[in-house]
Every structure is written in C-alpha cells, then in structure tokens.
Amino acid sequence: MSEATGSALQHHFTSLDQQKNAATLGMWAFIVQEVLFFGGMFTVYTVYRSQYYSVFEACSHHLDWKLGALNTIVLICSSLTMALAVHAAALGKGKAAAVWLAATIALGAWFLGNKVVEYHQKWEDQLIPGLRWGAAADVGRELHLAGADVDRAQLYFSLYFGMTGLHALHMIIGIPILAWLARRAWAGHFSIEYSTPVELTGLYWHFVDIVWIFLFPLLYLIGHR
C-alpha cells in the first residue's frame, strides 16, 4: 500500500473499498431526501397545474423558453465537465481534474448569470408575487389573462420563483465546494486510491442537473401549443 492509501483510510474502516461504499451510500441517502424535498414542490406544482391548467399555460408562455433551453444545454455541459473531473481525479490526474472543475464552475456561473437576466425581466414586468406584483389590469394585459385568473397567475410565479430559486441556491452552494475541490485536486490531494470527495460532489452536481431537466419542460414549455 502506498503512503497516500494509508493516510486516506480511516481507522474504523477495514478497506478503502468499504470506506468508499459507505461514503457513497451516505451521499445517496442525502440525495434521496433531496428528491423528496424537491418532490414536495413538484407535488404542489402538479396539484395547482391540474386545477388551473390554462392559467399555467398562459404564464409559461411569458417565460423566455430560448433562455431556458440555453440554460439546459449549459447545465448539461457542466454535468459533462463534472463527469470528466471525476474521471480525471479517479485516474490520479489532479491538474486535469482541477481544470475540469474550473470549467464546471464557469458553466454554473453562466447558468446563474442567465437566471439573473430572467429574474430581472420579471422584476421589470412586475411579476414577482408578494414583492413586486403589478396592478391587475397590467398583469392581465401582460399574460393575456382576465378576472380571477390574474390572481391565480401568482400561484404559477410563486412556484416558478420557489422552484428555480431553490434550484439556483443548490448551485450557489455547489460552486464554492467545486472551487475547494479544484484547489485540493491541483495541490495533488487526490489519487487513484482516494478521490471520494470529487466523486460525491459529482453526485450532488448531477442531481441538481436532473432537477433542472424536469423544471425546464414543466415551467418553460407548457404554453407552446
């Protein structure tokens, strides 16, 4: 066993294999609760969408689907660079892993930048429930809705900001972790025997990608027919 192996193995595990399996399972336990955490919001979405079908379609039509599609591609690219970072780290190529992690950070920042543009547009259009919601006549004209449906549009935009905001928060938390890993990878902290932190953060990043894979069609594309 190399020296790196000796220092990577915690005394309460019998082998690196067992240690890595335990860590991976723990990360999955966290991700599964994240699935149900976001799942609560998807359930609320499903309930209100089924009740106010046409209102949700009208509101969705107002979102910039091209920017949403661009962000989907950006996030898929960031998942690829993350996978390549995990790959490089597992082969003991620390410098390459650091570069791929930096690319992942850059793509994540691009995604968040696009999100800022979108949120700003909602601010301008006065479509932020509870904070900056326009007069009924203005919102109705903007969304092509009338009567009680104008108020119901607040449900859609509450869910839009709640779900995309929570998703963006996960990325804002993920980026500093990626930066910390990039620093460690560059310094040669990971090896063929031990690259578990990169692998587990990869799981987190891919999970965040999956959430967006569902958010994009359900929020941006339902008003297109």
Binding site: N21, W28, I31, V32, L36, M82, A83, G202, H206
Partner: peptide
C-alpha cells in the same frame, strides 16, 4: 444521468436499492 454520470449502473446493490426507493416514495 443517474446510471452513467452518477455511476449507479456500476454501484452496489444497496446503492441501487436507495435510488429505486427514492423514486418509489
């Protein structure tokens, strides 16, 4: 993404059970 990017295809049976349980719930 789950099978390839997240390596569940090559994961332990227990990990795979966790993933399926999450979807079921």
């Amino acid at each position: 993404v789950v099978l390839i990017f997240m390596h569940v295809k090559w994961g332990t049976k227990l990990t795979q059970l966790y993933v399926v349980a999450g979807v079921v719930f």
